[in-house]
Design a protein around this nucleic acid. Structure first.
Lengths: 254, 254
DNA sequence: AGAATAGTGTCTGTAAGACAGTATAGT
DNA sequence: ACTATACTGTCTTACAGACACTATTCT
């Protein structure tokens, strides 16, 4: 019926009551383990939720987001909402799915566009200190998945988690959750925090054999060309690395 | 402003004039080369376009699609439209992006959801014979990209092409463009048709070394357990393979 | 015989997997 | 001396890359 050829008559049909965005904001929270010696922190993947104050789902926790304006793209909207919730602007934000099940929103026919954002905990901390609002809070993802979230936000969160898990292993988004310069152990920890089943016994060997990994990361050197190291987490200083601009191309066929 | 907390008051804002879908329908068209001996056909990646009959972009070629109803998801809508255009129902169809640039559609504020579909040419042929309409036609993608398509459909086509190129190398969607049982040469040809720069000198070696490729494909055997072969394209019969249910998991970290 | 496709043999270098061993430095 | 992290050595097996060679069958 409603083919492109008859698009112009579409105004006879009902139109949507809104095209909002929902943003799944992930961060990794590090906590010191309090061991006798310097040690690697415990890392935990958390998601930012807000508590709704009005109908529908009053009192329930929900993903941040809001309605798109007719003067902006859904991407612009997501960036705007992210800025409002966290105060940050220049972070990784990415569209990943649309949610259009009829009846998903009691307010009407509302098709939502879901984004995911990765925010470094240190960037988020600035904002958290200033807000400190009880209605905006980070939850460990495993905990958030057990909660009764508003709308279909549990499904959206599940999908977002699947998406970053997949991307964590096939792209270099790990960089979004790490400082500019990092050690191999930190990288390994970040990957394991997002993808708990990830296990590589010879991780250092593989990641530093530049020929096979196509130079995704490189050693950091200081002004004199010497190798730059860090002993932040360990007695023995560890080599620092940074991601290069290379985005790896994977293939199942060779 | 328009945060989730104040969603209920969103009715004060302008609402979209429609949430259509656009579908990029790809197929591979094989043509015999007419050599002296049996030979592999020439394969060509083509996209289905329709010619618009009414304003806006009257006369221009466009992607098939149409407006979503308030009783269906955008995915349902895309399937419905695909069925209307090609008569086929049970094919690979997949959401890949949203297009929401203000002003992208002169009819109003219209946010479009883009899907891509892979249709086997033999499935499509049934329909093509019955329709044979001058306003529904397959174009080679390279040609379509040079045309003045309606709306932002050139951009959508470009994005769809990038998407299947990436997926062709990292997933087993090649199966959607092949018969159930196929030869290694056919598989190689399909990959090269979609990703022209793909080149593997020892392709047979790699793809059949089941340990490294995790058994993505397997040899087809006949009832007696003998290997099943085909000499459709060659004098010397070639081993037939089929895709297994395994979806490969790729990782840049090992 | 020649065309057109479908493989196999073999050699070389490199990488992966396992796992024990050494290195560093703070308490 | 012990803890906690950060590597390195070495061995084995497997795969990647190259490329020449054989195999099959139709015309």
């Amino acid at each position: 019926m409603a083919e492109n050829e008859s698009n112009y008559e579409a105004s006879r049909y009902r139109t949507p009551d809104g095209a909002p965005t929902d943003i799944v904001i992930f961060t990794i929270v590090s906590t010191e383990r309090g061991t006798l010696k310097k040690s690697l922190p415990k890392r935990d993947l958390q998601v930012l939720l807000i508590q709704r104050k009005i109908w529908p789902y009053e009192g329930a926790w929900a993903l941040p987001g809001g309605f798109t304006l007719d003067t902006e793209t859904v991407y612009d909207c997501a960036r705007r909402e992210l800025k409002e919730e966290t105060g940050v602007d220049d972070v990784h934000i990415e569209y990943f799915n649309v949610y259009s099940e009829p009846g998903r929103d009691p307010r009407g026919w509302i098709i939502s566009h879901a984004f995911l954002a990765l925010v470094n905990e240190r960037v988020l901390q600035r904002r958290r200190a200033s807000v400190d609002a009880a209605d905006v809070q980070l939850f460990p993802v495993e905990e958030a998945l057990k909660m009764d979230l508003a709308f279909d936000h549990r499904q959206i969160l599940e999908d977002a988690l699947g998406e970053i898990r997949q991307q964590m292993l096939t792209t270099t988004i790990a960089r979004e959750l790490l400082p500019e310069e990092f050690t191999i152990s930190e990288l390994y920890q970040v990957i394991q925090t997002v993808v708990p089943e990830f296990q590589e016994q010879n991780f250092i060997r593989k990641i530093t054999s530049t020929q096979s990994r196509q130079g995704i990361i490189e050693e950091v050197r200081d002004g004199n060309g010497g190798l730059k190291q860090s002993n932040l987490y360990s007695q023995r200083a560890a080599q620092l690395y940074r991601f290069t601009d290379l985005e790896p191309r994977l293939s199942i066929y060779g």
